[in-house]
Each structure stands twice: as C-alpha cells, then as structure tokens.
Computed example of a mutant assay.
Amino acid sequence: MRVHTRHTPAFGVARVTLNPGEGVQAEAETLLASSFGVTSAQSRKGAPPVFTAPAEGGWVDLAPRDPGDVYPLELDGTTGWSVARGAVLARPATVRRDQHWPALQTLFGGDTGFLEHFSGAGPLVLTCAGPVEAFTLEQRELVTVTPGFLVAYPDTVQCRLRALDPAGPQSVRTGEGLALDFAGPGTVLVQARARR
C-alpha cells in the first residue's frame, strides 16, 4: 500500500494505491473515487468497510469529512502510536487498533479518552484540522500541548495529563481544561488548527 496526498494542507485528499487483493479500511463516506473493480465489504458489524483491489491492483481516493490536511504516518512495526480519537482516515490490515492499551488506561483511568493506540507496520493515514507540525524532542526535552491540537505521539515519548485549572471544568473525553506534558526522545505531531 502506498499513499500520495494532494490538495494539502487545506482540502487534503489521500490516494491509496493497493497491490492486487490488498485492502484498506476507511469510512464509506470518505470514499471520493476508486479505480474500476475495487470492492467494499464490512469485516464485522459496525466496523468501517474494507476497500479491496481486484487482481490487477487499484486505488481509492479518500477525503475527510472536514477541511484540513491528510498525513500518512508510517508505522515501522516496532513502535506504537497514540492518535487523537477520530483522526484516522484509513489503515491497512497490517496496522491494528489496540483497544485496551495499558498506557492509555493509566492516562484516562476507566474512561474512554480522547486518544486511541495503533501498532503494526504500514501507513496510517490521518486527517488533521490544519497543517501538521512536528516537535522533535531530544532526551529530557519537554513540551506542553493542548489536547485539541494534538495529532499523535509515539510510545518512545513520555506523557502526563494534567488539569490547566484544578477548579475549572475538565473532560478526558474531549480534553477540555486539560494539558499534555511530553518528554523526549521522540516526535509529537500537532495540527495548526484545533479539532472541533
């Protein structure tokens, strides 16, 4: 699977080129167009469909619901990534969503937080509210990020969630009233516009 982006950063579209018989999972309403012969099937009830290329291969063009950038994040098979909930546009079968990732359970407790964890190998295509910027952190270097601007960070980065104002309203589901402190080494991806 290969990903080529265009019309970025304001109205990103991702062209996902598939090998013969290869599939990519994406929400049905994000399919802009596909080469002839690409089929669509749901792997399980409630899951997004998988678009599969015919014997000669093919492609799908995917466009996010909202304006913004698309960003292919290449997972190397050794390091997982925590990603803002709702930011995944497409993923191959070789990248899995880790529903009960221990580090996120520690971060959010028993609640469903504003992050999801992914691991495996291949391109995880992300949708962002604005252009993506990378903070490359050295050992012991620190940065604080507002949750609405966060796109993703790898397992190599240490993360702490804290209240901006302990007396103010806070939500682990949306990130309202919270801040994330990161310590390197690693790269933290943010977007230039806050997610709505």
Rank of each mutant, 00 (worst) to 15 (best):
D61W: 08
L62S: 12
L62K: 13
P64N: 04
R65A: 15
D66H: 10
D66N: 10
V70Y: 06
V70E: 08
E74P: 11
D76H: 01
T78K: 12
T79A: 01
T79P: 01
G80S: 13
A84M: 14
R85E: 14
R85Q: 15
V88M: 07
R91D: 15
P92E: 09
R96N: 10
D98E: 15
W101S: 11
W101M: 07
W101R: 10
L104A: 09
T106Y: 00
T106F: 00
F108E: 02
F108Y: 06
F114H: 09
S119A: 06
P123Y: 08
L124I: 04
L124N: 01
L126Q: 07
A129D: 02
P131L: 14
P131I: 14
V132A: 09
A134R: 12
T144M: 13
T144I: 15
T144K: 10
V145L: 12
V145P: 10
V145C: 10
T146F: 05
F149A: 07
A152T: 07
D155S: 10
T156E: 00
Q158S: 06
C159T: 09
L161I: 12
L161G: 12
R162N: 08
A163I: 14
A163N: 13
L164I: 09
D165F: 05
D165R: 05
P166K: 09
A167I: 00
A167D: 02
A167T: 02
